[in-house]
Amino acid sequence: MTTTPANSTRAPVLEFDDVSLAFGSRRILDHVSFEIRAGEFTGLIGSNGVGKTTLLKVILGTQRIQSGDIRINGTKRTARLRSVGYVPQKVSIDADVPIRSRDFVALGLDAHRFGLRRRTTEDRRRVDELLEAVDATSFADARLGDLSGGEQQRVLIAHALVSEPSLLLLDEPLANLDPRSVQEIVALLHNIAATRDVAVFLSAHEMNALLPVMDRIVYLTGGRAASGTTDEVVRSDVLSALYGHHVDVLQLHGRVLVVAEPGTTTDHLPSHETLKVD
């Protein structure tokens, strides 16, 4: 089920090798293999409930797998690694809590350590640098709870990046954002991947906003995954094989539309890009 990308010049940051996971009779990951490289922007695309969050938790080590290997930077992942930055789907911070943006970013440096080590000038410089990189300097001293969804997202990204991970995972960062914020965050993440030599791996139930920047795609459905460049994966033959029945991939005004035949189930198709012909 996996198409291996042709131009693999750099060493992969993350490798899934024949990974399987099932909850009872429900297969979440069924012999899934793919690779993610530094400096690349990879989208994890699948409809709601297909197992994207679980896959990210597998990478983080908070969810066990039943078979297969996961390698991060070439070594098999045994314990949780600090080389992975993570931005979860939902972080709700009360406006009544006086946590400034810069405080939250700084926690990315030392919240795994016990004790109150004094933060150094170097720490503060790194926090400032990250805040600037995500364009959050103007609200660095504002309370996190007072910020808009897009602004909070930037701070969370800075928090995840401040420990200089080689892999940045984001779980549905574009959900609940207005269209303009979506564009800004996508551009920001693309820029981060390119300039910081970080592998960005982002889950989404809609791929159109990501098409202009996505270097690679991991398309997840029914426990199976297809991966490669978008041109290699988002094709009628590849997706038909993945779904197990015929689907058409249409290009309309620069947007992609996955269309299922009449009578077939469209439950596993990404919701906003699916057209059922009746």
Partner: peptide, 19 residues
């Protein structure tokens, strides 16, 4: 204090850091 604070704000982010 610090692990506790992050765990209070986002248990998932704290767990990702190994807390």
């Amino acid at each position: 204090w610090r692990p506790l604070l992050l765990a209070s704000l986002s248990a998932e982010m704290a767990a990702a850091l190994g807390t």
